[in-house]
């Protein structure tokens, strides 16, 4: 991997969000969704507690639809417009391009997440929350967004159709979100060995995220999201490499 190339791809991709209305539309909808879910469905005021748990509790569910909206274009669009051919014939490795694009999308998701800071101001104005817990929750939420993005980036490389990329990513992310839940586990329980059932349930984003949301950054949760991102980005490189071998 070549840092110069990663930086060049990152800059192109990140600037690309702001070259079209995409970035602004996304950020506005992201913030409206975050706010309305927290205040209406989460009944933030009625709860009367100085904490942001209801706010963060909605993140996995909102990410489920909002993150695939970012990731769907990452590679599908390059294939549609033919720029993939241009990119792959420049003297850079596929890995540099994959990492550069992923980091740009992740930074953009981080920016949208960071712009929810009025929530943090509000809760500090109304009471005295544990800001350490809020900070780790933000960190955990961003890590989780990275997990969803890596899955979406890999799926986007499989197709040149953004709608297909979106729908498939939502489904796969849904399975990862709730894999600790009975909807998924019941399917495996009874016939699959217990080790497998445990393994599947340990892939749950919800379990790992709620652990971080409690204010404790356990190294295992960080490693979980980190290795998941690495795994899917590696698969992303393999998918693109297979396309040239045909």
């Amino acid at each position: 991997m070549n840092l110069n190339a990663v930086r060049a791809v990152f800059r192109r991709e990140f600037d690309g969000y702001f070259a079209t209305p995409l970035a602004y539309v996304f950020i506005v909808i992201f913030l409206l969704a975050m706010g309305s879910f927290t205040f209406y469905f989460g009944q933030f005021y009625d709860a009367g507690r100085a904490e942001l748990n209801t706010f963060f509790g909605f993140h996995p569910w909102l990410y489920l639809f909002l993150i695939p909206a970012i990731s769907m274009r990452l590679w599908a669009e390059e294939q549609k417009t033919g720029t993939l051919e241009l990119l792959m014939t420049l003297p850079i490795s596929i890995a540099s391009a994959v990492v550069g694009k992923f980091l740009a999308a992740w930074a953009f998701a981080g920016l949208a997440l960071g712009l929810t800071f009025p929530m943090w101001l509000t809760v500090n104005y109304l009471g005295s929350p544990d800001n350490g817990v809020i900070l780790t929750s933000y960190f955990g939420s961003w890590l989780m967004a990275g997990g969803y993005l890596a899955i979406g980036s890999c799926i986007s490389a499989l197709t040149n159709n953004q709608v297909i990329a979106f729908v498939v990513t939502v489904v796969v992310c849904f399975l990862f979100t709730i894999s600790g839940h009975n909807i998924v586990l019941d399917f495996f329980q009874g016939w699959a060995p217990l080790v497998l059932v445990d393994a599947i349930s340990s892939f749950s984003f919800l379990t790992h995220f709620s652990a971080i949301m409690n204010g404790v950054i356990d190294l295992r949760d960080v490693i979980f999201f980190g290795s998941l991102i690495a795994l899917f980005l590696f698969a992303n490189v393999v998918v693109l490499d297979l396309k040239r071998a045909g």
């Binding site: 192109r12 690309g16 070259a19 079209t20 417009t81 033919g82 720029t83 241009l86 014939t89 420049l90």
Partner: peptide, 17 residues
Amino acid sequence: QSAIGYLPEGAPAYPDM
């Protein structure tokens, strides 16, 4: 690839740039 300049069919370029 460093020694090659390549114009692919249809001259693809990033449309938003």
